[in-house]
Amino acid sequence: MTALTLPAPLPTTGSAATVIRAVRAWQLAPQPAGLPQGLPEPVTAAAGEPPAGPAWAEHRTRFAVELVGDGVSGWQAPISEPVAQIIADDLAQGLIGHDAAAPRRLAYRKKTGRHHSGPHARQGASAIELACWDLASRAAGVSVTGLLGGTIRTTVPAYATALGLDPAHPAAPAAVAWIAEAGFWGQKWPLPKQLILAGPKAVAKTLSPLREAAGDGRFMVDALGRCRMDQAIGLLPVLADLDVAFVEDLVPPGTWAWHRLRSAQAGVALAAGEHAVDEAEQLRLLAGKAVDVWQVDPGWSGGLARSLHTTELAADLGMATFPHGDRLPAALALAGTCCRDTIPAIEWHLTVEPLRQEIFSAPLQIENGLLPVRTAPGLAEPLKLPAGTPAMEVTGP
């Protein structure tokens, strides 16, 4: 990233502690390779390919963004190098002088450059918005849920995402049974491309033992958008017979194939939303009744305020929301502000979330399928910054 020379701070009002005086980027350690330590044996036995870790550039070169107020800072991490560059190039200049305690003003701050839409731009805007909530919360000495309107509940159920596990592995039913016994709200398993290509009968043969092992527990499926339209339509009766609670991204949401699938569905709830990063796309999916289950990610969708807005809109339309777990502290703050009918559960990624949590000085722990909602100021515990790592300063003189 290239350091910026910015003009004098813009005029502002509000508490001096929450006025942004500087924007910094700190480089973090890479995501560790392989599976996290401490996973139960049934889970590790069923693992397919290990998490990407340093094999992916966004996991290898990671940053934390810091918004510096007067005597207090707000943080968000991890962000990838392209996202950090967009923050430096397009967002930092307009942040100087912004009052982080005025979230509705954030959208009107000056932007430079042309990167204002698309996944990386929205991740950058989301990271800044979340860091503003973190700064405002720490400056006020109030939890983020308190700032959002009040803490409705202090624990939130989690469903276990088993992406990274192989549903065809002989140990998979034992992993399913362990997840069910561990108290999770439910569990979500992947449909690998090779299994999709094998056809509906092969899918039924593979998933039936897993569904049986789950007992009365909720069982979900994620196809990661890998199906062709004809493949997806052929799978719907199989998934209905398996009593799947919802199926995620059989085909890319919002496409012509998605709408064809929507019209052909046979009693299977369709879930989507985590990749709907732009406001117009979110509204098309929700207002167009293109989904049955809403999935939002505060780190991708524009931040907490936007996530709360679409969550409440989904509730008005009769849909439950299951926040995506990529930014778990933010998802927990969102869920802690909502009742269980609005957000029944949030995502806990079995093989990835423990690795994500390693950047924090006190990682989040799950117990009996429940995650604690933070009642202290800030979105999360302090970050573990490598010793001697210099801050990249993107501020005025």
Rank of each mutant, 00 (worst) to 15 (best):
R153S: 09
W75T: 07
G97S: 02
A25M: 14
A22Y: 02
G146D: 11
A362Q: 11
P386M: 00
W133K: 06
L28N: 00
A160W: 08
G186V: 00
V65E: 13
L135C: 11
T112R: 14
I96M: 03
V176A: 15
R260G: 05
G124P: 04
D297M: 06
A107I: 02
E248I: 00
P173T: 13
I233N: 11
L285G: 03
L235D: 03
T18I: 05
F63P: 09
K205I: 05
F63Y: 15
W256T: 12
T12P: 06
Y108R: 07
P209H: 00
W294S: 14
G325K: 01
G74P: 07
I87A: 09
V142P: 11
A257Q: 03
R105S: 14
K188I: 07
L328Y: 01
P36W: 04
A102G: 10
V296I: 15
T337E: 04
G199M: 06
F360N: 08
R60Q: 14
S126E: 05
G303A: 10
T5K: 09
A175C: 11
L383P: 03
L364W: 05
V83S: 14
A102E: 12
L350P: 05
W26N: 00
V83G: 09
A314P: 09
S126R: 01
S117H: 11
H275G: 13
T321Y: 12
A305T: 12
A3I: 06
P82F: 08
Q231Y: 04
S137T: 07
F184G: 10
L317V: 02
P103F: 00
A204P: 02
R228E: 14
E367T: 08
P11L: 10
V68I: 09
R114T: 11
M1N: 07
P397S: 12
M220N: 04
G267M: 13
A140V: 04
M220S: 04
L95V: 02
G267P: 02
V156R: 15
D99Q: 03
S301E: 02
R356W: 06
A92S: 13
E181P: 13
T18A: 03
W75N: 06
I87N: 04
Q31K: 15
P167W: 01
T12M: 08
Q93R: 10
G94S: 01
L10R: 15
T12V: 07
L370M: 14
W26V: 00
R218V: 01
V203H: 01
V352I: 11
S307C: 13
A88W: 02
I152R: 15
Y159S: 08
P42L: 01
S15K: 14
G254P: 06
E367W: 01
P119K: 12
G149W: 04
P397K: 10
A102K: 10
A139E: 02
T154F: 08
L286S: 07
H115W: 07
Q231I: 05
G336L: 09
W133E: 03
Q295A: 12
G217L: 10
I128T: 12
A223L: 05
A125H: 10
